[in-house]
């Protein structure tokens, strides 16, 4: 018995050794920053004075939070983030589901098509943003004869007037539309991959049974495919929301560092706001904003989990 206990102890000890590199890295790059964020967030005015030099001590309080929430820019960022998330998560999920089901039904070229749909996933999102910018662009606007990007040309084919999507003077909603298209397109591959994997692991016999039961196609989709995929759909939605709240690079990709069209409304998001505060050496405010973002994501994820528990099967 004693021998046995010793063995367990030794095994545990060994296990810790094996874990050590990972634990050390986690402590340095995850745990410490989190702890530091907490600390900075609750030190009133942290950052601003620190830069001025000297060993200042900071008062403990929630002034940073007050300042962040009170400052108009943050509310705009919050609004933009929420809007983009609420628009893109459902659209991309439904699209991904439809594409996955279609892909799964195609036998020839399935691998090839799968690869094509997966390409955006391995492409840099800033680069994609620049391509989108070109697609929606109007070149030579205002000074010379305008020449349009491909999207406006396509609209022209259908006899529609060109839209000022992203250039100077473009409207907020045009900007949001472009961002929505971009974010959805960027989010599709991962979702398709997950849902396709789910589809391929569904027992074919359920579909056989549905055929025997003379089930119409649409009903097979809504009553069998979707419920059987519900765990994957829940996963995709939850990660989609989390990703949506962290949206940032897409806006930089299309609109650049200013995160707005020239003369347009700000398209800044929460993560963008945090970066800006950091850049301005407002570490205290950045930390407070990060914590607020964390709280929002936490609450939304909890709601998601609660809903999906009620709605998913198994």
């Amino acid at each position: 018995m004693k021998n046995f206990l010793q063995k367990i102890k030794f095994d545990q000890w060994k296990a810790w050794i094996y874990l050590l590199p990972a634990v050390v890295l986690l402590l340095i790059f995850t745990v410490w920053p989190i702890f530091n964020t907490l600390r900075m967030a609750f030190w009133n005015g942290y950052g601003l004075f620190k830069e001025l030099g000297g060993e200042l001590t900071f008062e403990f309080g929630i002034k940073n939070f007050k300042w962040v929430v009170g400052y108009g820019g943050f509310i705009t960022c919050l609004k933009n983030t929420m809007l983009l998330t609420v628009l893109t998560v459902p659209i991309s999920t439904i699209l991904a589901l439809v594409i996955a089901v279609c892909l799964n039904a195609i036998k020839p070229f399935q691998r090839f098509l799968q690869t094509i749909f997966f390409l955006p996933y391995v492409t840099n999102s800033i680069a994609i943003g620049m391509v989108f910018e070109a697609m929606f662009n109007i070149v030579g606007f205002g000074t010379t004869m305008p020449s349009y990007g491909i999207i406006n040309n396509i609209l022209g084919v259908f006899g529609m007037d060109p839209v000022n999507w992203i250039n100077a003077g473009s409207s907020y909603w045009a900007n949001i539309a472009v961002l929505t298209v971009y974010i959805v397109w960027n989010a599709l591959p991962f979702k398709i991959l997950i849902l396709l994997g789910g589809l391929q692991s569904v027992n074919k016999q359920y579909y056989d049974a549905a055929k025997i039961d003379s089930t119409p196609r649409l009903r097979v989709f809504t009553k069998i495919t979707v419920p059987l995929l519900s765990p994957m759909i829940a996963y995709v939605v939850i990660t989609g929301f989390i990703g949506g709240f962290k949206e940032y690079s897409s806006i930089v990709g299309i609109f650049g560092d200013d995160m707005q069209a020239v003369g347009g409304e700000s398209l800044n998001t929460m993560v963008g706001y945090i970066y800006k505060q950091l850049g301005a050496n407002h570490e205290g405010d950045a930390s407070a904003a990060a914590l607020i973002l964390f709280a929002i994501i936490f609450v939304v994820t909890m709601i998601n989990m609660y809903v999906s528990k009620k709605k998913t099967h198994y």
Binding site: Q205, A209, I224, H313
Partner: peptide, 16 residues
């Protein structure tokens, strides 16, 4: 369109 009833060897009940 055949209108048959089939009991599968491994049932194939809809699990959800």
């Amino acid at each position: 369109n055949r209108g048959v009833g089939l009991v599968f060897q491994n049932y194939a009940l809809y699990p959800h």
